[in-house]
Simulated scan of single mutants.
Amino acid sequence: MNEKEEIEIDLSRVIDIIKKHFNLFVIIILIASIIAALITMFLIPKKYTAEAKLIIVQKSNPDSQQISYNDIQTSQKLVNTYSEILKSEAVSDEVIKNLELDVKNIDHSSYLKMVNISSIKDTEVIKISVETQEPKLSAEIANEIVLVFQKKIATIMNIENVTVLNSAKVPEQKSSPSNFKNILIGFLLGCIIDGCFVIYFLLNDRNIRTEEELKKIFNYPIIGLIPDMSHGTGGTE
């Protein structure tokens, strides 16, 4: 039966390595965190998100001024349909044309990347989020999508009861990238690098510290020990 060689990691040795190279490990973490911060602030483009919300209720009886429970249920089921219409070329092409976004090289595929359509659970409310590198442009696109959708939905599905809950405002704060998140990633990366160094130092440590280690290496009984004289003999001169 072949015996597999096992590597035992002594926690005290790990602690000794960390203490010995503590300054190095701290510097590595600081450098990784600073690099992550600099990349976030100067290399990754800032993006801004503007949001608009609208509510759509499809009446079963257009002549009635009241909205029934069935109308609400039907509208909730059609939210996914409305979302697809908002993402369609019928809406995107007109938004691009009205705002002359083609000058900025924005086409339908770019539109889909910057626009996110979501619904609030168990409601008829649809949220339109637009993320671009320009705060004002994000708000303009979101509001234009609402205007175009109001016209298109009346033609496509004969629905006129579209109410804007809130128009998009120009965002004052960037939505991405996250300084905290990226610096945290840099910090964790520094910790991983430190861990690799600890493993390297452990594997290359050839010092023998205990009798047990000596027995394992040479497989011979120990017949004597030489005391450590570096701290003095303990006697008098």
Rank of each mutant, 00 (worst) to 15 (best):
V170Q: 09
M229W: 13
N98A: 04
D194C: 14
F187M: 09
E160Y: 12
L30Y: 04
F22M: 12
Q173F: 13
Y82W: 01
E213N: 04
C191P: 00
S64D: 08
I145Q: 06
S176Q: 11
F218T: 12
S12N: 13
I55C: 04
A142Q: 02
N219L: 13
Q173C: 00
I117R: 04
Q65A: 08
I117F: 02
N116C: 00
V162C: 04
I141C: 03
N182Y: 02
I96P: 04
Y82A: 01
S110A: 11
Q150L: 03
A90Y: 14
E51V: 14
Y220R: 09
K77C: 00
K97H: 06
E100T: 11
G224T: 06
F201C: 02
P62S: 06
L78Q: 07
S92G: 07
L165G: 06
E51Q: 14
E94M: 06
R206M: 03
E89A: 12
S119T: 14
K19T: 09
D16S: 15
D16T: 11
E100H: 13
S60R: 08
I7D: 05
I106K: 04
I192R: 00
E211W: 00
N98K: 10
E84P: 00
I34G: 05
T236Q: 10
T123K: 06
A168T: 06
A154P: 00
N98D: 07
K47Y: 11
K19E: 08
